[in-house]
């Protein structure tokens, strides 16, 4: 693993961004890593973008903000947010896993702004990074029973890339600490689904 390994989880208020960062962070902390999570969620309940920066290191704690252009992995719970994050923290080698389900900004809802089509967005992202994977996590989550599971699917997808020392058992123990026992299995199912959906691990 690159040390420190820099992850950005981005999305919109209400998508469980903070929770996803906490799940991922706790899993890695359990594995003995220093984890720093920086969160920007001031305007989350009012339609704003939400972003978490995760720094993973064997050596020591890193700052809660990733330097410009230095992200290694971007997990986008909302598709256009991936592009916004790329513009600030991206580089050709960054890996992206992105949900395909849009959450429209109020300007788009109101008909003042345009939201790009998925192919349009794909090609824009491809201009900035070589390995971006789009999965319909929301649809899968709904199929599993609840749209909020999409963030667990996205964490699973991130794990599936093989970039991070994520141990399935460690993830399960984190989940167990955060959800009632009856919900553990459905969360693990979502996690495994994400791993499966994201495809082959990244080749080095």
């Amino acid at each position: 693993m690159i040390d420190p390994f820099n992850i950005i989880i981005t999305g919109v208020g209400g998508q469980g961004n903070v929770l996803a960062a906490r799940m991922l962070g706790n899993t890695l902390a359990k594995a003995g890593y220093y984890v720093t999570i920086g969160e920007t969620f001031g305007a989350s309940q009012r339609g704003g973008s939400v972003m978490s920066h995760l720094r993973i290191s064997k050596e020591s704690a890193w700052s809660p903000q990733i330097p410009k252009g230095k992200a290694h992995l971007i997990i986008a719970l909302e598709p256009v947010e991936s592009l916004r994050v790329l513009a600030a923290y991206g580089n050709r080698d960054v890996k992206i896993v992105s949900n395909t389900r849009p959450i429209y900004p109020v300007g788009v809802i109101c008909g003042d702004l345009a939201y790009p089509s998925l192919p349009d967005l794909n090609s824009a992202v491809a201009q900035l990074c070589d390995d971006a994977r789009f999965i319909n996590a929301t649809e899968e989550a709904v199929a599993l029973g609840h749209p909020i599971l999409s963030n667990v699917i996205m964490v699973g997808a991130a794990a599936g890339l093989g970039l991070l020392p994520i141990d399935d058992e460690a993830f399960k123990s984190v989940i167990s600490e955060n959800v009632p026992e009856s919900k553990i299995e459905i969360n693990m199912k979502a996690y495994r689904k994400g791993k499966e959906m994201v495809g082959d691990p990244v080749k080095f």
Binding site: R46, G47, K68, G69, V80, A87, P105, V106, P116
Partner: peptide, 28 residues
């Protein structure tokens, strides 16, 4: 030190500006 190559930064800004519609704050 180069944080982000100039060319990358430029195209990133253009793509983000044109394809990521702004999320204005609003009442719930």
């Amino acid at each position: 030190y180069t944080g982000m190559p100039e060319e990358y930064e430029k195209s990133g800004q253009i793509l983000s500006f044109t394809k990521s519609p702004n999320r204005e704050l609003t009442f719930c």
